[in-house]
Design a protein around this nucleic acid. Sequence first.
DNA 1: CCGGGCTTTACAGAACCTTTACCAGCCATT
DNA 2: AATGGCTGGTAAAGGTTCTGTAAAGCCCGG
Lengths: 228, 228
Amino acid sequence: MQDRVLLIEDDEELRVLLARYLSNQGFQVREAANGEDGLALALGQNCDIVVLDIMLPDINGLEVLRQLRASTHLPVILLTARGDETDRIVGFEVGADDYIPKPCNPRELVARLQALLRRIAWEQHTDVDAGQNYGDLRLEPEQRRVYQDEKVLDLTATEYEILQVLLARAGSVVRKTDLMQWALGRRLEAYDRTLDMHISNLRKKLGNDDPPRIETVRGLGYSYRLPA
Amino acid sequence: MQDRVLLIEDDEELRVLLARYLSNQGFQVREAANGEDGLALALGQNCDIVVLDIMLPDINGLEVLRQLRASTHLPVILLTARGDETDRIVGFEVGADDYIPKPCNPRELVARLQALLRRIAWEQHTDVDAGQNYGDLRLEPEQRRVYQDEKVLDLTATEYEILQVLLARAGSVVRKTDLMQWALGRRLEAYDRTLDMHISNLRKKLGNDDPPRIETVRGLGYSYRLPA
DNA sequence: CCGGGCTTTACAGAACCTTTACCAGCCATT
DNA sequence: AATGGCTGGTAAAGGTTCTGTAAAGCCCGG
């Protein structure tokens, strides 16, 4: 199954060069020399991805993109003049998926095309991922839930994050400062007892076993004890 | 609710700078100063997108990416040394979704993050299958109707869309921002309560059961509870 | 102009996070 | 062993953010 690329580019020399290269790389190539033709072809639903020059003789490339986005979400890579940051940013805002500065390296174009197509292929194949197990705990990231022996633990968002980080590092110590950064998303400041509180609440919800599931490593941090 | 960015970058000065900027732009930021920590965090499934420096003190960024790709398809933006085309192309081949040359303009980083997130959000959207049953509910996409025990529910267009999305992902959490994008077709802005209103109305029409069919996952979104 | 549907506003209440306060160990020093 | 500094546990209070929902406003097609 070859992927079908639509190349919208007015510079004949560059267009032919790229078309030939893409074709050699196993793509099926459609060409358009102006915005109007390109838009019509793109809307015709028989290509998988679009390479679009911004500078076109008739309609501006960004306008083509805008009209395209009104009805489809076909992946689009923009060709922009090198260094023109404005076009790039506007392009993204209008809904481009990627851009390449001109003059462009064909290898890079192919790499980007493939990256984009691969992502789309992946997204469309939906896989249900089973939860990860840690002793009697099971993490279900999809549902953002933790099960303890088939019973759902009623955790808050922060508690979930903390537990998740501890479990990912189960058996080894997570320093308080890292735990803070990773689970709460901010730096641990002096006299901030927030983390201690969350740990306390978590322990309560996990059941206050002995020895505790979440061990304190004084002066360092915490560590989730894995079952033997 | 806000998108969660994981920033893997060893240069503390740059990392803190970017983290602060991203945070001001409404992202939730997690930081990691080396490849090992970064990889562990990324695999923990509580970030939405990764910004990954290629030059890291321990594991090479490309290797981090490779290991990440072995099990997930989390979107990744690479930070590369300017002009190093090899890294860029290898990066794409390993599965990066985008790259930015260093030193990078924070505005451009944000633009790319948003472009990538928008694309992902769109691609992950899936429709329900025709005539699918969910407990006592049956969706008829051709007629755009929902039956509850053979009785048609009188839903508005938007309510139908929302329910459709929730059912397509029944059992797992749909984030507000995605729900907004998929059902209402626009981005969720701060203080926009539209979605909450529609959910409230939907619940009323579905019958205000207990426990509610549409569960609230505070700080994240909603989830349609599957029948046991 | 009317009515339905979408959005905004406003307020109340709930859930959550953080701070405060007090107490108990740990540890090095006296 | 007693002292004092420091770290950690936790209850309770305080404050913030998020959510539910009624009501009013807005927009568009008829």
